[in-house]
Amino acid sequence: MESTILKQEQMPTEQKYKENVVIKNPIEKIESPVLKIDDLSVSYGGDKYAIQNVSAGIAKNKITAIMGPSGCGKSTLLRAINRMHELYPNTHNKGGVYLGDENIYELNPIQLRRKIGMVFQRPNPFPTMSIYDNVIAGFNLNGIKLKRSEKDEIVEKSLREVALWDEVKDALHNRGTFLSGGQQQRLCIARALAYTPDIILLDEPTSALDPIATSKIEDLLVKLKKDFTIVLVTHNMSQAARISDYSMFMYLGELVEYGKTKQMFTTPKDKRTEEYLTGKFG
């Protein structure tokens, strides 16, 4: 019985689909969010939820950082936004995530991921492909035919956006895996950008990089937000403080606090946030 009720709840009615989605108990009101997370719970199997009842709007053309100690569910939340968490078997969710007025759980994950790109913790360029082919991989692998000149343009534009063009323009047809870690990560960002997604998700993109490469990526993200909406998972608080506009603090699967980064770092509302930010745990 319970499961059928649950299913009915999950299925948005026709009306809900058409009208603007109203988020239940939003912690932070975001003006015209590009993405709305609505009472989302995600489980990797069984009754235990990795994140529970998370509601939040993601602001357009801003950087939103998700912070929290290990195992708090920040990566799960990020992956639930482009349904990468479904790669694990037995996952199930409650609630929804809305891109515009569409519930992403009703979209085909393939279409969805073309709108929401992702960059991972460890740089992962395709090892069999050249730098050029890596950038254009989203098109090539999806069977989208482009003229040579169009490809050239996309590759140059994307590599310029990640400030990698000058470093690699003479070696475009070399393997991407010969680049340094930081360059590889910028290549991976370029690969995600080339497809011009609405949102880019980054899962601790600098945790495998040295400080110089990290600061380059941070500068880059700040520049990129004028064209893209960026959601960033980090367990580096100072990184969140440096570059994000909004911050979420998650603890034990719960979204504890969500607000403007400045305000959260100066006057946190929740005691747990304060303790985390002052290094008492985490």
Partner: peptide, 19 residues
């Protein structure tokens, strides 16, 4: 082969058979 490669391709919206 590290699983991150598969993730990279899937995150670009590439269908499984092409991955």
């Amino acid at each position: 082969i590290p699983g991150t490669l598969k993730e990279a391709a899937l995150s670009l919206g590439v269908p499984y058979h092409k991955v």
